[in-house]
Write a protein that binds this DNA or RNA. Structure first.
Lengths: 102, 102
DNA sequence: CATTCATTTCAATAATCCTTGAAATGTTAT
DNA sequence: ATAACATTTCAAGGATTATTGAAATGAATG
């Protein structure tokens, strides 16, 4: 994960609707949730939800898979971990205070 | 640290110049660095550096203190840790894969 | 106290991002 | 085939963010 990837991932997370989408998908674990379900939970129109889901997917934080008529999104926890790893190790140089928080 | 604070902090980090500023200030530890020094390192004009330093300071990730003619900025590692804590614990619900990365 | 130095503030422009609603795509069922 | 469903794509507009250079602030020095 290089600097550009990190900035893309942080930009993806730095938005209210998307942060809520991610939090909801985290609760759904590996099973994930369909776009329409996510849209309902975060109270966004289909196109708005799709826009934000695509942004998160482009950042690699979530992954899409078609299942019949629905498209299921689930969190890529490895990627999320890689982002945390960059922030703690590279960006914060393993600072003890930062590390103690996670 | 509430959701709004987290989004402000993530927005602050999600920008190339600011991420570099933060990384540089991390290397300087508690001593910090003057605005002009930071500007030189990240190759930004004084006003541009000031803009980005203010954005990081508004987000609480760095702290400013005047020292004679200079203004010294240093990382608030507690705050940085609080952000990581939110992402790992609240946002990712302590997911093991995510935790293992930091 | 006038000057220089370090930095910020301001206004204008450019660039990027978000929302909206309509149209298009792909899928299942009748 | 046709209709209904789930979702995406697209174009337009509005909102936010970044950059620039000039002017203003605050502090030290001759």
């Amino acid at each position: 994960m290089n600097e550009a990837d990190v900035i893309t991932a942080l930009s993806a997370l730095a938005q209210e609707t998307r942060l809520r989408v991610l939090r909801y998908l985290v609760t759904k674990g590996p099973a994930g949730a369909a776009a329409g379900e996510v849209a309902g939970v975060v109270e966004a129109s289909p196109s708005r939800a799709s826009f934000h889901l695509s942004t998160l997917a482009d950042a690699g934080l979530i992954v899409a898979e078609r299942d019949a008529r629905s498209i299921i999104y689930r969190v890529d926890f490895e990627r999320m971990g890689a982002l945390m790893g960059y922030l703690v190790h590279d960006c914060c140089a393993n600072n003890a205070t930062v590390r103690s928080c996670c």
